[in-house]
Design a protein around this nucleic acid. Structure first.
Lengths: 341, 341
DNA sequence: ATTAGCACTTGAAAAGTTGCAGTGCTAAAA
DNA sequence: TTTTAGCACTGCAACTTTTCAAGTGCTAAT
């Protein structure tokens, strides 16, 4: 732990750098700390020795190191109260009852991205905790059918199949009825197992070509699990308004990363707690030059991660404040269950 | 129309510039045209006078103007034959019968984007020519239902509703049955009209709270029409490998445009013909500095636009060749209807 | 422990230097 | 009439040099 004055100094350096993106010199801080620039230089030398701040070159001002940012967010920063306007905006989005929750979250993140000039990401995973409500077969004619899977949370995925001419579509429908009767309420990610061990033996006796019919349902459920993780990114280009993205190389590097869906999906927060987590620079897997602030949400069987991607020189207090607010809102939803028209 | 040698000269200039992205000088073309650099300079002066080529500055080589590119694509260029490898790749994608057509098109465009380092866009509109196959109501409990709409082409959209406690869900289901009986086969964009004038009078007699029940279906169909235009962009960042995107400003400008969905949707080709259309620079609404090559596809009730976005200095012959191939394939599908496992 | 003062360092911006790739024009050759 | 060789000229791009401001560390005095 640092001394009082060092804390204050570090905070001033971090906040000034966040605001201006320019290295901070000793003179600029005289007033704030009520002492001379020489004193500040001495203290700075200490902070630098401890690794909290850095120089770009020998005669430049100081810039926070990753360790410095970390110390700042852990010890010096307080989440910022939202402005009345921000609160109003967010409430407007949430109060729109026509939006499904996931859409409301997406809209919020759009707004945050707009407000902050950072990029925001929502990684929703809807398959977990979803229970099979109903599987339906809709015949289209021309030997095609649509199989659709609906869960108790109202999430629907559909898949089209061309069925072999040798198969009687009535038998496919019959199978769907058996599945509905026997597997209703099964967690969606366990359905295929039960399909194999419980349903297959039954239909093998009643239905010709049961292997092929089985395949249709197997594929449909598989598809559900695969597709139901969805990604929403807002303001991919917002972050490029930040002064660290002035040259082509940095921009391209990041554009490429935003374009790489598998990389984006890795942002998914693995921890269970709903706390806000901050990953600065090297601490995140996505990109060394950014900070990612994430938090998880769980609500009514949907879960996911919301994340803000910004430069390391990010307005930590503000972003944490915003995410705090959203989290609290979602939690209220979950517990209060204040659902009515 | 230009003279023979001028045609040849312009073609060489355009193709050289496309290949190298460097202004073309007179010396470099001596061999190709079998004459001295002085002669070429004279001809160049004429082409410049006519507006087909330009100089960046007084002592630089020549660069094609937009008019020059246009003349090139209209008069000088021949679509390039695809390499065996390209054909193989495309066929592999199309031969995968598990993919719905729209997915296959998306995959193709992904591939083209990879192959060419341009960005490709698919704007699908699936609502047109789609006929109502079935509307289903799946009750979820907790006074919620999912309404889903399926068309004869197998396209499904679903929407969740909280139904008023005063409404009997059985009546909602009953309404869905009436709709299925009466409106089966109705073009999806006409359903809501018939819903109002044919269904509403009927249910008004049979069902309590028919206004609210009506609203559910009305919203569901509306949603279908709204959501069923989908956008697929591949290789948003590919185009930045092109040498014209070396500086931050250009990149940001384009990143912003790719991020603006409403702008992307405007790319939708309005003409009816399936021809390949080329919009160079100012000719397109998207961005002055790019060329967009588009074509429309219609197949089995799905229609849409595929587009390639590249620098004006684009390999026109190759891209046109690729799109030609895809178009031809889609047309075959439509007429031949070669559908079997 | 703090501060004033000073020599020193560095990068960024401005100004200057050079060479090259390409031009237009003229006059001669075909 | 068309083509070509030759030459003076131009502008950029890349490189070097100059200048300047901002900031530092260290020393000695407070």
């Amino acid at each position: 732990m640092l001394e009082e004055r060092q804390n204050k100094l570090l905070r001033e350096i971090v906040e000034s750098y966040i605001k201006t993106a320019r290295p901070v010199g000793s003179k600029a801080l005289c007033e704030k700390l009520n002492c001379s620039s020489a004193t500040i230089r001495n203290e700075m030398a200490i902070l630098e020795g401890l690794g909290y701040i850095e120089k770009n070159h020998i005669s430049s001002g100081r810039v926070p190191s990753e360790k410095g940012y970390k110390y700042y967010v852990d010890n010096l920063m307080k989440p910022k109260e939202l402005s009345g306007e921000d609160i109003l905006n967010l409430q407007t989005i949430f109060s729109n009852k026509d939006l499904q929750l996931s859409d409301a979250i997406n809209k919020c993140m759009d707004m945050i991205s707009d407000l902050t000039n950072y990029t925001s990401i929502v990684l929703g995973k809807s398959s977990k905790e979803n229970l099979l409500q109903q599987v339906s077969i809709i015949p289209l004619g021309n030997n095609k059918v649509v199989a659709l899977v609906c869960t108790d949370k109202g999430i629907v995925e559909s898949k089209q199949f061309s069925v072999d001419v040798t198969i009687d579509i009535a038998e496919v429908v019959k199978t769907s009825e058996i599945i509905n009767k026997m597997l209703f309420g099964t967690p969606i990610d366990e359905v295929n197992e039960r399909l194999e061990f419980e349903i297959k033996p039954i239909i093998s006796k009643q239905i010709d070509q049961y292997e092929k019919v089985y395949g249709i349902f197997y594929d449909a459920f598989n598809d559900f699990i695969k597709n139901s993780s969805n990604v929403h990114i807002s303001g991919k280009s917002k972050i490029f308004n930040q002064p660290e993205y002035q040259d082509a190389k940095n921009i391209k590097k990041l554009v490429n990363k935003f374009d790489d869906e598998s990389l984006i999906k890795k942002i998914d927060e693995s921890s269970d707690s709903n706390d806000i987590k901050i990953y600065i620079g090297d601490e995140n897997e996505f990109d060394d030059d950014v900070t990612i602030i994430k938090s998880k949400y769980h609500v009514k069987g949907e879960e996911g991660t919301i994340a803000i991607v910004g430069p390391k020189r990010m307005e930590y207090d503000r972003v944490v404040g915003l995410l705090d607010y959203i989290n609290k809102y979602i939690e209220d939803l979950e517990s209060g269950d204040s659902e009515s028209e």
